[in-house]
Design a protein around this nucleic acid. Structure first.
Lengths: 337, 337
DNA sequence: TTTTAAAATACAATCGATTGTATTTTAAAA
DNA sequence: TTTTAAAATACAATCGATTGTATTTTAAAA
């Protein structure tokens, strides 16, 4: 029936009140009398009026919307960051548009474009693994558009980044293996094009150096840290029987490696101890349960969004890196009795 | 510097070409000559023009955007459904706005409202656990607005629902426990206000009836199926030592119950066999690995979105339920040697 | 009761893109 | 070279809400 949506003009005509007054009434402006407001609100309800945000956003040049781009929403870490963002956003009266880049550069670029054409007030992004070119951010940053990078920072030029102290956490994780008797510790590393994995790598190296352990290139396995990469790494490890500990740059790879090694008759943690990174929910329930680094995910979301809202409202761009503290969660996979 | 965004009017003035021609050129209309198009495209690029989707959507009364509301994006099942939706949407040239209701009725209502005020062309929704009142859908449905319900259908009046065959799957799951020697099978059930959990409950009952097993009320535990509910259920089970099998309406509860029972010295599956529902990734890696029902998640997303796009474009509302086939994945938790 | 200030409401322009219609330009036909 | 049809471009209205300014109404003060 009622094909065309009800507009303020319908209410206006219906009541013989100018649409500007209707608009002000619906926005609870003090310029409209109580009596008129009530009449308008009642009629709006009656006609099933629903504000057209597109028109409102176009006119006011303010969308009260932010965009969030993460590699994948299914990752527990990102889902938690998003929860943190949404909580802050809700309180601040912002809408949140969630997007996943699936770690593809092309997709990420397209998403940034779509968000901007929808005139979001700011963007929070954890850049995709496939991204090595940052031009699509530079343009907008130069115009003072608020973009904040979290977890996986933007490496070029000055930006507002929110990261965790990967280096320190990785050093601690590796040190923990050393203190638990590991002599030959391998590292499952991610793509070195990504700053975050370089920091984790550096933490591993720093721990070895601290204890005067030799750095052995053949103990370092670089991959995309997917499930199948873990199996591949595990196979390589079996060729190097002296390896008695692994610090993996994420949980997923550690877990798939562990599962494979178990099928090959390895005893964990007795033969090989493991420490992961991220504290995926799965880590707590596998056997042996995985020692890992817990990241302050929810907090990261809150911090990132709070900073973004500040930038949006004060128009002050900080270009400053905030570092949050992660925490080593000790479980069974790293304790050789 | 360049505070105000570039519009077609800037290009228009800059080249002395009317803005309508600029608009048509940017949309590759055949009404503009090749030469003019090239000139306009070049200038647009040069000025860093970016279309204002808000204005475009307002004018055309078409947003090419759909909204998706799920209880939580972190749930593997929903993340996969979303991937399916996004794939179809991408091919069809639609934007997707992802929202999570966190199983709250209030939040869900607000999200529906926000999506509609942003004039999405249609909505895909898996209703929240907290939702028992469906008025917020009825209004819009009556106006012919395309809404499709998936996984957790809308129970009132006629709607387009896409569900899996929960009853059949639950029957199979329970039957599987019976065939593997379980004599006293408990059921962890969800809120009976939700159709989906009623169907799973019915499947459980149907299996018992098929094999002439008595239905014992004290073996049926209703909860919200969260992690802590599983522990609670496990505690109850310990008081009923005759229970030798459990069919749980989701994996999360099954897993936390299993973990608790293990700490209490129970042998799984020897003492108590388990079958879950959902095939969460975690199910494959716990010990014993959990037998469960795999739902065609990605496919559900594709089917739901395809149906939605049809409704949007043909204006034909089907009000028809599509039932997809789930699959029993047999792992170790249910096989008593 | 008249004057005046304040309160309430109306008028009109605007945000940026789109689109039906009118006008101008170009090229083909006479 | 003039006429005519087609191609290209310009004009102007519109989508729905907002907002600065102008006008009208109301209520208080004189």
């Amino acid at each position: 029936m009622n094909k065309g949506k009800i507009t303020i003009h319908d209410i206006s005509k219906n009541l013989g009140i100018d649409s500007s007054t209707v608009s002000r009434a619906l926005n609870d402006s003090p310029r409209v009398s109580k009596k008129t407001k009530e009449k308008i609100l009642k009629k709006a309800e009656e006609l099933g009026y629903q504000r057209n945000s597109l028109a409102s956003k176009l006119r006011t040049n303010r969308t009260n919307t932010i965009g969030v781009i993460v590699p994948r929403i299914s990752r527990h870490f990102f889902a938690s960051v998003i929860s943190g963002i949404e909580e802050t956003a809700f309180d601040a009266g912002y809408e949140v548009i969630i997007c996943q880049s699936l770690d593809s550069y092309e997709r990420e670029k397209k998403l940034v474009d779509t968000l901007l054409s929808n005139r979001v007030d700011g963007i929070l992004i954890s850049i995709s693994m496939g991204t090595t070119n940052y031009d699509h951010f530079e343009n907008y940053k130069n115009n003072g558009f608020p973009i904040i990078f979290f977890d996986r920072p933007c490496e070029v030029s000055k930006n507002t980044n929110i990261i965790i102290d990967d280096l320190k956490a990785s050093l601690e994780a590796t040190e923990h293996l050393i203190l638990n008797g590991c002599k030959n510790i391998a590292h499952f590393s991610g793509p070195q094009t990504i700053e975050l994995y370089r920091r984790r790598y550096k933490g591993y190296i720093a721990a070895l150096e601290k204890y005067n352990f030799p750095i052995r290139e053949e103990f370092i396995f670089e991959s995309n840290l997917m499930k199948q990469d873990g199996i591949q790494c595990a196979k390589e490890i079996l060729k190097l029987p002296e390896i008695d500990g692994v610090f993996s740059a994420n949980d997923v790879t550690a877990i798939s490696a562990m599962q494979y090694l178990k099928t090959q008759g390895k005893k964990l943690p007795e033969d090989i101890a493991f420490v992961g990174f991220s504290n995926e929910p799965i880590s707590a329930v596998i056997e042996p349960s995985l020692t890992t680094i817990n990241q302050p995910d929810f907090e990261m979301g809150k911090v990132a969004s709070t900073l973004l809202f500040n930038q949006i409202n004060n128009k002050t761009v900080l270009n400053q890196t905030t570092i949050l503290e992660p925490e080593l969660i000790i479980r069974k996979s790293s304790i050789k009795n």
